[in-house]
Design a protein around this nucleic acid. Structure first.
Length: 206
DNA sequence: CCTCCGATGTGCT
DNA sequence: GCACATCGGAGGC
């Protein structure tokens, strides 16, 4: 409650709908290279007014977020890939990070891509748990950067959710961000086993 | 050039 | 809860 007021004061109405668009992606179906997931966890990132966003500074890497919505923004971090949907915010360069999903098709392919950890095989419910693992399960790499997600002929496509079919949606602070660490722009479907545990950035303020 | 540092994942104490 | 592998982007010099 208090944090919501804080967010509204900090972020004027220009970015409020970025969070709404992130919420609306929950329950959508994303297909990547033969594997389909239902999206269970997302995070909203705004543009130049959101220091946690890559679009906070406009560079060659973040340029795609200043372009048309519905395209895929892929970046690498710590040797992993992360996938975002560029959305049309009231402000420029809004995007939604796809953090987790439940595999609904292509489970065998996803298992093969994930392989086994030292402690054993990855449970099917966690094949696309976490943004890096989601990309691995779906075979998303930098070659998919800029894909038009509405074009059914591409290897990566997004099918919108039917509103009101996901069950309860929960919100909290974004995982692992140092700046704007208290803005509650992570959204997930309550009870889904693919959803990440919250980890605060070690050097986040407060 | 060179340094810093993550929108991470995994394993271990 | 904590350490660390890992690597490219971004910015400083």
């Amino acid at each position: 409650m208090e944090s919501l007021v804080f967010a509204m004061v900090q972020e004027p109405s220009a970015t409020a709908s970025v969070a709404e668009q992130a919420r609306s992606l929950l329950g959508a179906h994303l297909t990547g290279h033969g594997v389909t997931i239902m999206v269970t966890e997302v995070e909203a990132y705004a543009g130049p007014d959101d220091p946690a966003s890559h679009a906070y500074t406009r560079t060659a890497r973040s340029e795609i977020m200043y372009g048309p919505p519905g395209r895929l923004y892929v970046y690498r971090i710590h040797g992993h890939h992360c996938a975002n949907v560029v959305v049309a915010g009231p402000g420029p360069a809004a995007a939604v990070l796809l953090r987790a999903g439940a595999v609904t098709e292509g489970t065998e392919v996803a298992r093969a891509r994930r392989g086994a950890t030292r402690s054993g095989p990855v449970p099917d419910s966690r094949l696309a748990a976490g943004p890096g693992n989601l990309c691995r399960a779906l075979g998303i790499t930098m070659t998919d950067l800029g894909t038009d997600l509405a074009d059914p002929t591409t290897p990566v496509t997004l099918t919108p959710a039917v509103a009101g079919t996901t069950g309860p949606i929960v919100a909290g602070p974004r995982v692992g961000v140092r700046r704007n660490a208290d803005v509650e722009w992570r959204f997930w479907i309550d009870g889904q086993p693919s959803v990440s545990a919250y980890r605060r950035h070690p050097r986040a303020g407060r």
